[in-house]
Design a protein around this nucleic acid. Structure first.
Lengths: 244, 244
DNA sequence: TAGAAATCCCAACATATGTGTGGTTAGGAT
DNA sequence: ATCCTAACCACACATATGTTGGGATTTCTA
C-alpha cells in the first residue's frame, strides 16, 4: 500500500520530529503509518492558496517552498522560506482557512497527509502533538525575528540576517557546509521577502559583495566572511532552536 | 485554597477557550481547577524577560500587555499588544527559552499558571491542547499580517491597520464599541510597534486626524470614519478568527 | 545552437522616513 | 499654585529606499 516514496517521506518526518524530542517505538510506528500522498511540483507552482480550506497538510520532502501574501496593486510579501523536512502549513490543522498562499520555489517533492490522520495521531499521542505544536511555535519565533528586522534594521542588515538564517537552516539538515549553499531565489523574490524593491535589493547585494562578505554566482551563495556577516546582521541563531 | 481572584481569572480563561471550541464539563472543571497565582503589575513593569526560562505561563486578566525585543543601540521592536483573556507567553510551554520580553503596558492583573499543570491538562485533554495550540497559531497569523504590513505598507497604512486590529480585538471582548476605545500607548511605543520614529508617528497621526479618519484625545481613540480607515488599511479581520 | 524570455545590473531622479532640535502642553507631586 | 517630567507637536535638513527606464547577461526552450 505505502509506496517507496511515501516510506522515504515519512522516514524524513520521523527524523525531523526526533530532532526535537524522543519518540517511543509506538509513536514512531504511528508516524510511519500515516497515509502520505506524494506529489512532484514544478518551480513556482502553488501548493495551497489564500482563502482555501485545505484538508491536508504537507511535508516538504525535497526542494524549497515559500509562503506569501498578495496585497493590492500587485504587491507581494514573502513570509518565509522552507526547506526539506519542514511542514509549512501545519497550522491549517487548527485554523481552517488559509490567510496566505504556499508555493514551491524550485522543483519540489511534497507529501500530503490528511488532517484527519494527523489529528488522530495527535489525539492518541500527546507527545507527538507537543512536538508538532512546537514546530509551529518555532515558525512563530522566526516571524517575530522578521518583524524585528523589518522594523529596526535597514536593507543591508535584513539581507545579512536572512542569509545567516537560511544558511543555518540548510546546514542543520545537511544541505550546506563551509558557509556555502544554494540559493534558488531571484532578486525580486529576495526583495519581496525583505520589503525592498528589486533595484534596491540589487544595490544591497552589490555592496555586500564589495565588502567581501559574500559571493553570489549562479544560484549559489558563498559567505566569505561569516563572522562579519553575523556581526552586521546582529545574528543569534538561538531562535531557530537548531541546537539539540 | 483558590482565591476569589483566581476563580475569576480561570472563569475568564474558560470563557476565552469556549469562544473557540466547545468544552466538556470535565474539561471545564479541569481548567477551573488549574492553580493560578494572581499578581498586580504597575504600568511598564516587565513580566518575563528575553533569555529567561519561565516555569509559568500567564493569563492577562485585566489591563494591556505587550511583547517586545531589544536590539543594539537602544532600538526596540514591539511585536504585539495584548488584551484581557490573552495568554501571551503560552509558547513557553514548548519553547524553553524566551526570545523576547513581555511587559505590562498599563496597570495589569495577571494570573500565572505553572507549566507543569498546563502540560498535564493538555496531556489529559487533547481537545484543550488543540484549543491552546490554536491560540498560538492565531498569534502567528497576526505576526504574518504585521510582516506583510511592514514590508508592503507605508506608515500611514500600517497605523491604520493597527488601529483596525486593536479595535476589533477590544470589541470582541466587550471593551470597545461605537468605534471608540482606550489606547494606553504613547506615540513612541506606537512607533516602536510600526517601525517608525516617534516624529514620523506624530506626522502620520496628524495627517490621519486631518483626514477626519480618527480623533485621539487623552488615551482615547475614536475612529470617526471606520470604512475609510478599513479602506486605507486594506483591513480584513478574518485573520483574527474572531467570528464564531 | 539560436532565439526568446527572465534576470541582473546600473544611473538619475523622486519620495518616504529618520534625525536633531526646540517649543508647547498636560498630569502628578510637592 | 508651582515645579517637574513625560508626552506631544513642529520645523529643517539628511538619508534610505522607491521608481523609471534601459542595457547587459544569463537561462530556458525550441
Amino acid at each position: 500500500m505505502a509506496s517507496v516514496e511515501s516510506k522515504a517521506a515519512l522516514d524524513l518526518l520521523v527524523r525531523r520530529l526526533e530532532r526535537i524530542g524522543h519518540l517511543s517505538d509506538e509513536e514512531r510506528r504511528a508516524v510511519g503509518n500515516l497515509p502520505a500522498k506524494i506529489q512532484t511540483l514544478r518551480p513556482r507552482q502553488d501548493i495551497v492558496l489564500d482563502k482555501e480550506k485545505p484538508e491536508h497538510s504537507c511535508l516538504l520532502v525535497e526542494g524549497w517552498a515559500y509562503r506569501y501574501k498578495l496585497l493590492g496593486q500587485g504587491r507581494r510579501q514573502i513570509l518565509s522560506f522552507h526547506v526539506p523536512g519542514d511542514m509549512p502549513d501545519l497550522h491549517s490543522l487548527h485554523i481552517k482557512t488559509m490567510d496566505h498562499s504556499l508555493g514551491a520555489l524550485t522543483e519540489a517533492t511534497i507529501a500530503f497527509i490528511a488532517h484527519e490522520a494527523l489529528l488522530d495521531v495527535t489525539r492518541r499521542f500527546p507527545g507527538l502533538a507537543g512536538i508538532m505544536w512546537r514546530e509551529t511555535l518555532i515558525d512563530a519565533a522566526i516571524f517575530r525575528q522578521w518583524i524585528a528586522g523589518m522594523g529596526q534594521r535597514d536593507g543591508f542588515g535584513r539581507m545579512a540576517h536572512l542569509f545567516c538564517e537560511l544558511y543555518c537552516k540548510l546546514e542543520a539538515i545537511g544541505l550546506a557546509a563551509d558557509h556555502r549553499c544554494t540559493l534558488p531565489i531571484t532578486q525580486t523574490e529576495l526583495g519581496d521577502a525583505l520589503g525592498l524593491s528589486s533595484v534596491h535589493t540589487n544595490r544591497v547585494l552589490q555592496e555586500m559583495k564589495a565588502q567581501s562578505l559574500i559571493e553570489l554566482r549562479t544560484r549559489t551563495l558563498n559567505i566569505t566572511d561569516w563572522d562579519g556577516l553575523v556581526q552586521v546582521a546582529e545574528f543569534d541563531p538561538s531562535y531557530l532552536q537548531l541546537a539539540q
